[in-house]
Amino acid sequence: MVEHVEKHSPLGGFAARLAAATRASGGAVRLAELPFLTQVNVRLDAKGPAADAVRLALGIPLPVAPNTMVRGGGLAALWLGPDEWLVVGPPGTASGLEARLRGAVGGTHAAVTDVSAQRTALLVAGPRSRDLLAHGTSLDLHPRSFGPGRCAQTLLARAQVVLAARDERRPGFWLLVRSSFAGYLAEWLLDAAVEYAEPPS
């Protein structure tokens, strides 16, 4: 017997509460889950031929500067380490993206791993999003030091996250958090966002 397996996102049950916190803040903070993003971990020698092949296959280079992100063609490549990147794409494209990357690196000493189920993504945006995140991280999130194109692996409220700044004029961040920590982090964000709720009139 084949059972139909439904896909659940780690924060599926939080959608209404995240939306309510967004409404309560009057737009000061926007919280939402971005479920099922495609995430592929790539490890290779940044100076080797595989890096060039990946650049041609994706249309964007793998960034070599620490804590930076390159976006283009619906994809984002985040620096995770001197030989490690996370390529993020739209939902449902994991097998195609993995195959493209595998084809590009060929037989070189490299690893391409689909890690889409490892983390889920949260959108934290709005004019007070920086203040909200500052409750839980000591990173300087001012656009002067953490502007568009910046990303970082760090601890937010003691949970390991990948933080990326959206390349728009208004402040906003993506937060990639491990599925098993997502519920905790969502609860923490909702609690921290209470401060930015507008007083009832």
């Binding site: 380490g81 001197p82 000591s138 970082a152 692996q153 601890l155």
Partner: peptide
């Protein structure tokens, strides 16, 4: 690689 970060 990453710059100054918390000891934790």
């Amino acid at each position: 690689w990453c710059g100054p970060r918390d000891e934790a």
